[in-house]
Write a protein that binds this DNA or RNA. Sequence first.
DNA 1: TTTAGGG
DNA 2: CCCTAAA
Length: 694
Amino acid sequence: MVLHKRLDYGFNGYQVPYTPRATRSARKRCSFKKRAEDNQMCAFDLLASVAGKLLLEKQRTPSSSNTSTDEDQSAVIKDTEKKEMRDENKQLKVETCDQGSWDRGFFVSELVSRAYDQKCSLKESSCQQDDAHFGFASVITTSDCSEGFGDQKLVNGKTKNEMGTLASKVEVGHSGYRENAECKVQAETKKFIKDELHMTGKVQFGTRADGCSLEDPMAWDGKPPALVSSDSSAKAPLCGDHSLRSSFPTNRDYVNLVSRDDDENSSGCTHPNTTKKSFRPAPRIGDRRIRKILASKYWKVAPKLKDATLPNTNGELKTVYRNRNSYYKSIRSERNYPIKKRRLFNCSSVSNYDGRISSEDICVSPERGINGDVSTLCPKMQEASGASSSVAGSHTSFQSRDSHVKLRIKSFRVPELFIEVPETATVGSLKRRVVEAVNAILGGGLRVGVLLQGKKVKDDNKTLLQTGISHGNQLDALGFSLEPNNSQTLPLCHGESPFMLPCNTPQPLTRYPPTPGGVHQSTCDATTELHVANVGSFIESDHDSAPSPTDLSNDKCTKDSKALVAVPAMSVEALAVVPVHRKSKRSEIVQRRIRRPFSVAEVEALVQAVEKLGTGRWRDVKLRAFDNAKHRTYVDLKDKWKTLVHTARISPQQRRGEPVPQELLDRVLTAHAYWSQQQAKQQLKHQPETCLLL
DNA sequence: TTTAGGG
DNA sequence: CCCTAAA
C-alpha cells in the first residue's frame, strides 16, 4: 500500500514480488563478505543444536508436537545425525549457565548486532510495541532497574559472580534511583559495564520475551522469563513511554519512510501505531549507521543527552540486554537518536515484514517440553501466554539455574527454489522436484542463518543472550534459514523480488541461463514459499544478506516462477534444482555479481522512470521503478541506461541479448536527448547569472 | 551515499 | 558489472 504512493506515475515500475528490502548496507558487498566469514562455522552447529532440541522435545512430549511441523522437523534430521544433535543439545543445556559456553556452542555473534538493528527498525517501522515488549529492552522498561537486576541475581548466579563488580555497581545505581537520577549515576557505571561486557561477554543481557505480538503486548510482560521479574508494575511505565515515543516521530516523511524502510518492515507489518509511521527520524539512515551510533554514541554519550531527550525514551536502549539494564536505562532517559528507536520495535510485526518470514513459519517457540511451560513465543501461539505469570514462574524456576534457550523450529524456508517444470508436469512431479532441490541444498554444505526480527544476525561471536535470544525471550522473532554454504556456488538466490511481475508476455518455459561459472541459475521474481514436505525444512534466504555469490538469477525469473507453479504472492527463492557444482575453494574471494540481464519489463520500467525523472536521478529511478528489485542498484540502472542508449544507437544487427523492442529504444533516445538538453540548461542556469530560466 | 564515468 | 573519484 504504501509502496505505491511513490510509484504512482502511471507506470508502476518494474514490480517484483515484494520482499522486504534489506537495508542498503546489508546489500552491500562488504557486508556480505564479512558475513560470510562469520557465518561459516556456526550455522550448522546452531542448526544441529536446535534440531537436536527439537528431537528431544519431540520425544519427550509427543503430545506437544504441533501438527505437521514436528514431523517435518524430525524428518529433516536424519537419524544418523540425531545423536549428534542430542549431544549438541546437551551441551547447550549444560552450558547454559555459562555464557561463554554459549558462544562457543553457537556462534551467534551475528545475532547480536542484528538483533538490535532489527528490533529498532522494526519498532520504528511500525510497531507500537513498547520497549517493554521489546525483547531486550523489556528488561528495563520497568521503571525500576533494580528489579531487573535483582532478577538477574537470582537467576544468574553465575553471571553475577563473574561479573561481581559490575553487578554490584549496577545495582547501586538502580537502587532507589529513578530514571533520571539513575542515569547520572549510572553513566559512570556504564562505561565500566560496557567494558566488562565486551571483555567477558558474560554479562547477560536481558532477554525478555518481548516477542510478543503486537496484539497482546502486555502478555509478554507477564511472561518475562525468569530473569526479568515479571512485574506488573513495570508494564505501566513502559506503556507510557511508548506513547510518548510514538508521538515523537510522527513527523517523518511518510513516504520516504515507507519506501526506504521496507527493508525491515514492509508492508506486511501493520503498523499499530496510530501515528504515522513510527518514528523514523532519518529515513535514510542505514542500518549500519544506526548500528554505529548505537555502538559508539549510544553508550558513551548518553549522560549528556539525557535531559534533552524527548519524551520518548528510547526503547532502543532497552533493547539491550538486561544486565545492562541500568545502563540502558540511563541511556534511555537520555534521549537517543530516534533512529535507533526504530530498530527497537518488536517482532511480531516482523514476521509480516518479510513476506516470507512469518511468525508462523519461522518462528521458534520456546520449547514447552522441558518445563511443560507453554510459553510459546510465536505470536500466534501466544494466546496461551496469557497466563504469562504462571509461565513466567515456571521459567523462572527453571531458568534460574540454567537459562537455556529452547527453540522449536517449526520450519525452515526454502528461499529461491528454482525449479523448472513443464506446465504439463504433474503436481507429483513438481513435488519431487522440490524435494530434489531441497536435498541438493541440504546435501551441499549448508549454512544456517539466524534471523531475529526478520533480520539476519551477523555476529556469530555474540552470545545468544547478547543477541537477545534467551529462553523466554522473544523467540518468536527468531528464525533460521538454510543457506548454501558461501563457499559453494550453489545457486541460491535471494529473491529479491517479491511480487510476481504480471506475466504479460508469456514466455517459453524457462531456461537456465548458464552462468559464467557454469552453473545454471535463475531467480524467480515471484518467490514462492514452498514447504518441503519431506524435508520438512524451510530454507529461508536472508533477504538482507548481501548478494551472495550464490545469488544468481536472470530476468527470466518471472517466467520461471510461472512455470513453477507457484503460489502466487509467495516468494520463492530459487534453489537451483540443477545439479550444482559446488566450489568450496575460495569462498573468500569476492565474486562478481551475477549477471542479470534486464528483462523487457524492466527496461520498460526503467525507460518510464527515466522519462519522468531524467537521467541524473538514478536513486529516484531506483526507488520509483525498482524499489522492490533489490538486486538492481541505482548504479545498475544507470549502467543499464547507458547501455540502452548505446544499444539504441547501434544497428539492430549489432545488438545482442534479449531484443529490446524498438519502441523502447526509441523512447530511450528521445528521453536521453531530452534530459541531456535539460541538463545543459540547468548548467547554464547555474553558471552564468545572465542566463536565467529558459 | 549518489552521481558520473571509465574499465 | 565493477571500481572510483567527486560531490
